[in-house]
Amino acid sequence: MTIANVGTRGPRPAIFLDKDGTLIDDVPYNVDPARVCLTRGAREGVTALQAAGYALVVVTNQSGVARGLFGGEALLIVRARIEALLGRRLDGFYWCPHYPAGVVREYAIACGCRKPQPGLLTRAAGELGLDLARSWMVGDILSDVEAGCRAGCRTALLGQPPDPLSLAPQYMPTLVAGDLAEAARRILGATGKSGERSALDDPRPAPRA
């Protein structure tokens, strides 16, 4: 499912943001705007990244739709709440409503858009005219990182560095940060603070010491 702003120009680099646990606090299956709160550093990080010219695109698994807990219209309200808290518009808001064990038949399927599949990112790139090779996927779990790597993006993992044995080497994050503010500082440092290619601008994960 897709919500994208009209008139977005490309090709632009993007910051693909996971929603729950990355941009807002992780409250399972929450669509109550009163309970939507930004994570630490989210507003600061998003502000810096947008000012540097990155498109801001949320990509999120929302199996609650397939489970019959809420409909897509509830996510429109969540998007509006997030934008109000950030004080800025998002360039896109994409979600996967699918879950094979769901109770809503049309969504109870295996798909190519549920992370770690890259479908949400590649669809957003096509619709919004985004340059995946200059883009970043930022999330708090390894499926976010894998989705970004599969789409050809660099990746930032929020939280603790992963165990090198927990995933294939090609899906290791490019960088690990404590929160979105730190991730933004490191992303901007790696790209000359403009989103343009630099000597460090390689979509492949950086080697880890």
Rank of each mutant, 00 (worst) to 15 (best):
F16T: 04
G41C: 07
G72R: 14
S63C: 07
R40F: 11
F70N: 02
R9H: 06
A52E: 14
T47M: 12
K19S: 00
A42R: 08
T22S: 08
R9G: 01
I24C: 05
T22G: 05
F16E: 15
G53E: 10
G64R: 03
R40T: 13
D20F: 02
Y29I: 02
V65A: 06
G10Y: 09
L56P: 07
G21A: 04
D32F: 09
T47A: 15
L69T: 01
G72N: 13
G71C: 13
A74F: 12
G41W: 11
A42E: 14
N61L: 00
E44D: 13
A48M: 15
G41E: 11
K19H: 03
T39K: 15
C37V: 09
V6N: 04
R67S: 10
P13I: 06
D26P: 00
I24W: 09
T47F: 12
L38D: 05
V59C: 08
A34Y: 12
Q50N: 13
I15Q: 11
L17N: 04
A74D: 13
T47S: 15
A74K: 11
A52C: 10
G21T: 03
R40I: 10
P13N: 11
G45H: 09
G53I: 00
N61S: 01
P11A: 01
G72L: 15
Y54T: 02
V57Y: 10
F16A: 06
S63M: 09
A55M: 07
A42K: 07
A14I: 04
I15P: 08
N61Y: 03
G53N: 05
A74S: 14
T8L: 11
D20R: 01
R43N: 06
F70S: 01
P28A: 02
C37Q: 14
T47E: 15
V65P: 08
R43Y: 08
T39F: 11
I24R: 04
V59M: 06
V46P: 07
Q50M: 09
I24N: 11
Y29W: 11
G45E: 09
E73H: 08
K19E: 07
Q62A: 01
L56Q: 11
A66L: 13
P11H: 05
R43W: 10
A74N: 08
G45V: 03
G45L: 07
L56T: 04
N30C: 14
T60R: 02
G10H: 06
R35Q: 15
G64M: 07
D25M: 04
P11I: 01
K19R: 15
R40V: 11
R35N: 14
V57P: 10
Q62W: 02
D20V: 00
Q50D: 14
T60W: 02
G41S: 07
A14L: 10
D32S: 04
Q62S: 00
D18H: 02
G64F: 05
F70A: 00
L23Q: 05
V57S: 09
P28L: 02
V59S: 03
Q62P: 02
A55C: 10
A66P: 14
E44C: 01
A42M: 11
L17P: 04
P33G: 00
L38T: 00
G71V: 08
G41N: 09
V46R: 06
R9S: 09
R9K: 10
Y29R: 03
V65W: 08
